[in-house]
């Protein structure tokens, strides 16, 4: 039983990743695609953070009372990744706004149709 539960964190990660991927691939609305991209991104955060957790450990802020700390390195990497993530999402949103101004829609099928008609 513990063997099965031992990698449950990866399964959650994979579920979120696949869910995000599905939203990006299957849906045509660009705002929704970006939300999917965000979910995909957070699954990567989880992929980095969950192996760094040590059972019985505590947050890596050194104090005399504690001996065992979780791995601080993934925290650093993901901390910056989150803020970079919002910057990329913002850039994507800016594109969405411009596409909406140019075509009057944010569905990629409709944009493609308008392109072929023109």
């Amino acid at each position: 039983m513990t063997d099965i539960l031992a990698s449950v964190n990866y399964w959650v990660t994979i579920f979120l990743m696949v869910g995000g991927l599905y939203i990006i691939v299957a849906h045509g609305n660009m705002v929704k695609k970006l939300v999917g991209l965000g979910i995909f991104q957070t699954s990567v955060y989880l992929l980095f953070l969950s192996p760094g957790k040590i059972l019985g450990g505590t947050a890596p802020i050194l104090a005399k009372e504690f001996e065992l700390y979780s791995n601080p390195l993934p925290h650093v990497l993901i901390l910056t990744a989150i803020v970079v993530g919002v910057a990329t999402i913002a850039l994507g949103m800016a594109f969405v706004v411009r596409i909406h101004e140019a075509y009057g829609t944010v569905e990629d099928d409709e944009v493609q149709e308008l392109e072929t008609d023109a």
Binding site: G38, T42, Y45, L49, S50, G52, K53, I54, G57, T58, A59, P60, I61, Y69, S70, P74, H75, I78, L79, I82, V83, G85, V86
Partner: peptide, 14 residues
């Protein structure tokens, strides 16, 4: 997961 710094960022940013 003990990532308090990251959690703070995610709550504020995400």
């Amino acid at each position: 997961l003990d990532a308090v710094d990251v959690a703070m960022t995610e709550a504020a940013v995400g």
